[in-house]
Design a protein around this nucleic acid. Structure first.
Lengths: 232, 232, 232, 232
DNA sequence: GATGAATGAGCCTTCATTCAT
DNA sequence: AATGAATGAAGGCTCATTCAT
């Protein structure tokens, strides 16, 4: 089994919404609850659940600290709401993928859609990594309702086609994991790459390039069943 | 430019030292300072700097909370000492790589050594991810003294050989990043994979398999200069 | 140069506000910030900055310990606010003295006003003594913005009139110091005198008597320029 | 009743032993217990009982913090020992005064001896003021075993001679207090005067001048019974 | 006698949360 | 719905004291 990588860097219109500005300020015209969620996403992604102070969220949302409690009963509940809001669209995208007839075309579309979503909410990846690393209460949900279906979906796809060589079944899990590393990991490690290279991986250019890399991988992994022009 | 993946799963003797047991207890016979560092590594990796309570570290180290301050002046200083201790061996490995005459052989050796080190200290990866995501004070150090040399080393290696096709130079950075995702990311996301698949990526089997994946990647990326049988 | 003392003990209506009750309780109807300042004055005057526990202040003020920090950023800041509040009126009294045309009459008035103020805030003297003895951060301010003008004022007054005998100029500083000892020192040493004699120097009687002593001193020191009946 | 002041400033050889150097270091050749007491006196006088850290004493004494407990069972016990050592010579001086046949000559001698002792241990005054102001446990001892006899002695002297005018009996207490203010208060307030005037009241010159002031006062208060040349 | 290491208690301060307005 | 004020519950850190060596 082989994977070939070929990258081009033509830039499309994917843009980031939130930066990692430490002095993030939510859109004042938005409804209060949404302002709170937006602000929370940024702060939680940077400080983690334990390290986040509700007053910092309140300041970023432009409301009084006590007002948060008109919308969410506790910091933990707010945290879960943020996670929920960030992850639900991803689950829906994957459900769509599972139901698609043409795996190859849909895989490319889904991956691009996922990257698009992560570009719009670049903190979701960080939230997920933090939750995973801290083995928080949300991790089982993350694992079973979200990541497990992805694995099973990908593994199912790979099993459905003739394995070109004598390949360990567990490789399929590796492939699914690889996608995770290259999509979510791209955003999670963005600050390191940014500081080391001077280029922001969450910029339109950086995101497009990573998306192309993922598409190339798909072309390598799902080549035969679809008569696809991109396939190498 | 192509990368082909071929995996086998023969397991070797790489073993993990620390689990992610929430009730970690440092080796009582070790010297106090080392017990504190060991315990801190586990707790910081799980809770992050802000979320860690010194009392929890003390309990895990089997010492009184006040004793920590006989060895480290503050929680932050302890945190930095943990990071330093975890990262220094990696820097030294990479320096060795930079000085090696045979890139291909040394690359395989270094990658295996890195994975070996991460297997022995599986929390180092998590610490790094947390530091990156939270954009902590140590991030610039991480970026410039550690990750930047890796990138430059890999980029230098790749530039030194004939580029088979019209390839964007920035790809090289992507390759370096890929190694990061597949080595450190492997350990950082381990809890998620463990929960989703039931298999522990930090087990000897899981680590060996990931190491093989990385070696295969190296065989693909550094094939020509060394008359190497693995090269595809 | 001579000073003659003659005392009478007719008591006037000078009354003390705060005792040295160890279980001091601030006026519950006052605004919180003022309650905190009142309580702090009592406790700081007794325990000093280092010896004071914020919880004791909070208890004396009738508020929660955390509430202090809604008004003052730290124990030190609260301490300075207490000193400032206690000393500012004294500075203003002295500025008034400096601008007065009739030194003798105004000196008597100022001294009585100072004693009146110290009677109302008998802990201010103690605070000053503690600050001086511990050579705290506020001591330079105390010396240059407050005590130095007093000395210069008194010295200026004394220099302006014919020195009756060959007197060392430094005597004037001694005279200023003498007033300090007899006014502030009276309150600072009150607990000792109270315990030794059974009479409270901060009682109306005690204060009036000390005020008369100071007035007598003034009559001796500023006799000639004013045709004053009290002058001996 | 009159008191006349006349000062001269001829300097004698009274010298101070300890400064108020914040980095006081006890004489290394002295016996350990004495080194501890010397160091404690300096630190307690500046920080008070509550504000003093035993480690600071130990550092100033040049011993390990634990060694203090080979000599004194607790910080409080050490504090009392320091007070005791500082005050006992004063009590003995006063007992000598009480037994003297010639009050006037002995008063002058005692006052000079007291000032001499305070000059050698300028922190004793501060310790006493701190103890009085904080109303510490030692205050009753101070009041009854030490200050009360002084008062009674002075009052007794004054009562024994014909009162020149109609004088309140309580004046006698005032006179005793006056001596306290002008001797102990001189050292207690020294840092303020030093900072305000630039001259150190605890220097030989400053002490001599204050001693002359006290002698002049004695000459005024005990004039007739002794045919003394200094009497005005 | 001297000391490095260890610790229980407690202190200043922060923080999530509540409540009256 | 919004907020200023208030607070119980920690959290980081210090400190007096103990003890084995």
């Amino acid at each position: 089994m082989f994977v070939s990588l070929r990258l081009v860097t033509q830039v499309t219109d994917i843009t980031t919404t939130f930066g990692t500005d430490p002095a993030f300020q939510a859109e004042p015209t938005a409804r209060t609850e949404e302002r709170i969620l937006d602000a929370s996403e940024v702060v939680f992604a940077r400080r983690g659940l334990a390290g986040t102070r509700v007053r910092e969220i309140a300041a970023a949302a432009g409301v009084n600290g006590a007002s948060l409690y008109n919308y969410f009963p506790s910091k933990e509940a707010l945290y879960e709401a943020v996670l929920e809001r960030g992850i639900r669209p991803l689950s829906e995208l994957l459900a769509e993928f599972a139901a698609a007839p043409d795996e190859h075309a849909s895989a490319r579309r889904i991956v691009r859609a996922v990257m698009q979503h992560l570009a719009e909410r670049p903190h979701v990846s960080k939230l997920i990594y933090l939750e995973v690393i801290s083995q928080g209460d949300y991790l089982p949900t993350l694992a079973h309702k979200w990541f497990k279906p992805i694995i099973e979906q990908i593994v199912g796809e790979l099993e459905a086609r003739p394995t070109p060589e004598h390949v360990d079944e567990d490789l399929f899990v590796h492939v699914a994991t690889l996608f995770l590393h290259l999509s979510f990991g791209h955003f999670a490690l963005a600050p390191l790459l940014h500081a080391a290279t001077g280029e922001d991986p969450t910029s339109p250019v950086g995101i497009e390039r990573q998306t192309r890399l993922l598409e190339t991988l798909i072309d390598q992994l799902f080549p035969r069943l679809a008569s696809d022009p991109q396939a190498g």
